[in-house]
Design a binder for these strands. Structure first.
Lengths: 212, 212
DNA sequence: CAATAATTTGGACAACCGTCAAGACGGCTG
DNA sequence: CAGCCGTCTTGACGGTTGTCCAAATTATTG
């Protein structure tokens, strides 16, 4: 068919196909978003396709239509999650005009994230742990980890810049530090430890000047 | 019965009971150890009691006899794991007579741990993530986290001491840093990244003098 | 040795899982 | 309008899961 088509017809066909693809992909994202709701509530292990469907406006068959596999669905969820996550602090970084301003903006967002999106973040830690067992997750997880490291690095270099300095440690070490602190605070927060968030803020406030 | 027993008979009965309890508990640990084998291989989510039994010398019924629940079994596994883990660096800490000696001893153990016990550690990270969803895990996990933090702190204070200094950061921040670095290195190592271990060692070698 | 208790076995059970396929629905095209 | 195609629904399938239990086996006690 495609071989016999004229140039114009080919272009139309291609355009139609990419439109279909876009629509298809938009639907995938829509389903992934719905799935994230349940995944954040129950975690990867306890979440079944049926449960996802029941907590959403879709039937469980649709998920099999748009995703070849349960892993395929989860991977799509993870990728979608990444896009949201990685730009969280960018506005603060670009608008802050002083170290204090950056510090306070960063801390405020940090606290809000921990408070409001705890479920999404515990899912992230869940999936990252699963990647240690399930090779299919590794590529996406490592990629997201890299983006998060870059995100932290943008904050740190800007913070250093505002004090005419350079960060005192590597991107990897800096990310490890913040990730470790956040993970610990998240667990404590979920365990109803009311000091989890203030303790994290204090720690970061103390740490920032010493590493940049 | 107990009411009518003489003092001596009571003591005998109590002794017998504690003996039974000890035996019971020893068996629990034995089963937990067998379970850890499969858990480290498959992770928490994919491990069933039947699979555990099949990979061990026990039948699946025994596990239900000694553990009220699957969670009960896992909790016992986690507690047992803790005891092994937390003393790993103690010998190095007590025998090292110089900063270099401590550094090299620590790094050697670190590399060996990552190399030889990767499966046990990914299980630990798995369970810690599960604790964010499953309240029943939280108490044990938080307790182990505390012990690990103390373990790192013992290393750091000793390292500082050998240089007549004091650690420059809090126990929590220091643990977060090392835990973050280790977690990242573990994931990369499991993804067959051959630079994972050397990179970790380089990073820690560079970091140690700056934080103590 | 007999009898009582503790331990172990292996199968049965209902519930749930991921997957699949046959068919229904609705819009678009020829 | 008829036919096709992408989309979606629904129910069924085989397999696995945690749990439970009755019977068998072993250890302990009187």
């Amino acid at each position: 068919m495609a071989r016999q088509a004229t140039g114009a017809a080919q272009r139309v066909a291609v355009a139609a196909e990419t439109l279909r693809d876009e629509k298809f992909n938009a639907r995938r994202v829509e389903l992934a978003e719905a799935a994230l709701e349940t995944l954040g509530e129950l975690g990867f292990a306890r979440t079944s396709l049926r449960e996802i469907a029941q907590n959403s406006a879709f039937t469980h068959g649709v998920f099999h239509y748009y995703f070849s596999d349960k892993l395929d669905l989860i991977c799509c969820c993870v990728r979608h999650y990444k896009a949201k996550c990685v730009t969280r602090y960018d506005e603060v970084v670009t608008t802050a005009r002083s170290r204090d301003e950056l510090t306070e903006g960063f801390l405020a967002k940090l606290a809000a994230t921990l408070q409001d999106e705890a479920r999404m973040h515990r899912l992230w830690y869940d999936l990252r742990s699963q990647a240690m067992f399930e090779p299919a997750f590794r590529k996406d997880v490592l990629e997201i980890d890299k983006s998060l490291e870059a995100m932290i690095w943008r904050i740190a270099t800007r913070y250093a810049e505002l004090g005419n300095r350079k960060p005192a440690s590597s991107p990897a070490a800096l990310y490890a530090l913040f990730d470790g602190l956040f993970q610990s605070a998240l667990l404590r927060h979920l365990a109803s430890d009311e000091k989890a968030i203030p303790d994290l803020l204090d720690e970061v406030r103390r740490l920032l000047p010493t590493i940049c």
